[in-house]
Amino acid sequence: MDTLFAPLLGGILVGLAASVLLLGIGRIAGVSGVVGELLRPGRDADSGWRMAFLVGLVLPGLVGAALWPSAVGAPDASPATLVAAGLLVGFGTRLANGCTSGHGVCGIGRGSPRSLVATVTFIFVGGLTVLVVRHGLAR
């Protein structure tokens, strides 16, 4: 039961977070956009809420690791693979203007066809990647 209830409740919390940001300050809670826009020059006027959101995002990890160490797992990949994966995720999400949160949650939640296409694409390609790595070329 817990294996189904915890993800659903966690998802509702994520949706609540995005709702607070939308109804509070009219912004879309897309993590790649929040981070990526901080890396663009000349965006200083807009950086306050982005930094505050990111501080909030990191803090539960700090507390969670202390109270509930098993909540945070280690990835099954080498440091080199993780850096390469990070590069692809960073560049790809910016090119697509969104990631799992901006497209997957907020975009689909407001009925955006673009976000639906983006989400279907990254889940499909992600599935294909796992298929190749786990069951295909690597074996």
């Binding site: 995002l57 990631c99 796992v130």
Partner: peptide, 21 residues
């Protein structure tokens, strides 16, 4: 670029199990 960027993201997501959040 929406589809291409999402595909590039999908590869990195599948390799690591991480998305930005």
């Amino acid at each position: 670029r929406l589809v291409g960027g999402s595909a590039v993201f999908g590869v990195g997501w599948g390799l690591s199990g991480y998305c930005p959040g």
